[in-house]
């Protein structure tokens, strides 16, 4: 490998998707063969209300450049009645917290994606990758790299 070879920064994004809507939406993107950048790694949870801030922080700590949290549309699509509202509250608060750590709040994104929105899932990933490329690697990762 050439030492001077400059590779474009490829962000690593962790996606936490609820089983019933958003994970199904991501599946539909696949069934419809909608292409999007391969930067996201999805972790399935039953409900967006299950997504613990600890998971998100752990993702950033381990070098994620972005985190996507996605659940069923507000107000009434949630399979478990109101988990999505809980996710909304947690992510909103957590955005403030990560700012304190020096992580740009834009790196944590919350989206409502239904089981029929394969297109939207792909568009969200595309957009996030683009946005995070502009932001550059996660500041947490930079620090680690300096060590």
């Amino acid at each position: 490998m050439s030492a001077h070879e400059k590779r474009e920064f490829e962000p690593k994004i962790v996606g936490f998707l609820c089983n019933w809507c958003s994970y199904a939406g991501a599946d539909l993107a696949g069934v419809s063969r909608i292409q999007y950048p391969p930067n996201i790694r999805v972790i399935r949870v039953m409900c967006s209300g299950r997504i613990d801030p600890v998971f998100i922080l752990e993702a950033f700590k381990n070098g994620a450049d972005g985190v996507l949290v996605s659940g069923c549309h507000l107000p009434s699509d949630c399979h478990y009645l109101s988990g999505n509202f809980k996710a909304l509250r947690r992510v909103t608060l957590l955005r403030r917290v990560i700012k304190e750590f020096g992580i740009e709040p834009e790196r944590l994104r919350l989206e409502w994606i239904s089981a029929s929105e394969g297109d939207k899932f792909a568009a969200v990933v595309r957009d996030m990758v683009e946005q995070i490329k502009k932001l550059g690697p996660s500041p947490l990762k930079m620090k680690e790299g300096e060590e």
Binding site: A26, D27, A29, G30, V31, R33, Q35, Y36, P38, V42
Partner: peptide
């Protein structure tokens, strides 16, 4: 692990990246 609907089918033109994913 969902390596079809969320991997091979959505990265059809990037076999290397799809394999890594």
């Amino acid at each position: 692990a969902n390596i079809r609907d969320q991997c091979s089918w959505v990265h059809m033109h990037q076999p290397k990246e799809a394999t890594e994913k």
